[in-house]
């Protein structure tokens, strides 16, 4: 090798002018893809279902507590600061309670034993595996 002093940069000479252009446009593509696909849409409303039917659709603008009746008892859903969680549920395993706060559109918490669910939706509804 004729260029020992810059050996660690020697591979750069294999990148021609057009290659730099390709690299640059590839980088721009990746950044744009990331920005468009990872900009988690903020939720606008929460859809609360009980027994498969829509119980209520609440806006996230105001903080409130909602009691949702199910076959086992009452599930308590709380809306605080544009976030939603299931505060308490009579189900045995408490999966939906332990799921914690939901914030982004598309997130969903299901309390299957009590047949209660809360789903966050944005301005437009995306398809997901539940309604595909």
């Amino acid at each position: 090798m004729n260029y020992p002093e810059i050996k660690h940069l020697a591979v750069l000479r294999y990148i021609k002018a057009g290659d730099w252009l390709t690299l640059l446009s590839g980088g721009v593509c990746v950044v744009l893809l990331t920005l468009t696909l990872w900009s988690g849409e903020l939720a606008e409303k929460a859809v609360i279902r009980s027994g498969g039917k829509i119980f209520r659709i609440v806006a996230l603008s105001g903080d409130q507590q909602i009691e949702v009746p199910g076959p086992l008892g009452i599930s308590l859903i709380s809306v605080v600061n544009r976030k939603v969680r299931i505060a308490s549920d009579p189900g045995p395993r408490q999966y939906c309670v332990r799921q914690g706060w939901l914030q982004q559109a598309g997130e969903i918490a299901l309390c299957l034993p009590n047949q209660v669910s809360v789903e966050l939706i944005g301005s437009h509804k995306r398809y997901d595996s539940l309604n595909y």
């Binding site: 294999y14 990148i15 690299l23 590839g26 980088g27 696909l37 398809y127």
Partner: peptide, 29 residues
């Protein structure tokens, strides 16, 4: 057939750019 796989595209695209560049450099070298 689920729109959720779109969330993985940035990861794959980044990997494609990085590994594509590295493989090209190895081939050129």
């Amino acid at each position: 057939p689920h729109a959720g796989i779109a969330y993985l595209i940035p990861i794959f695209a980044t990997a494609a750019l990085v590994f594509g560049t590295v493989n090209g450099l190895i081939a050129a070298r």
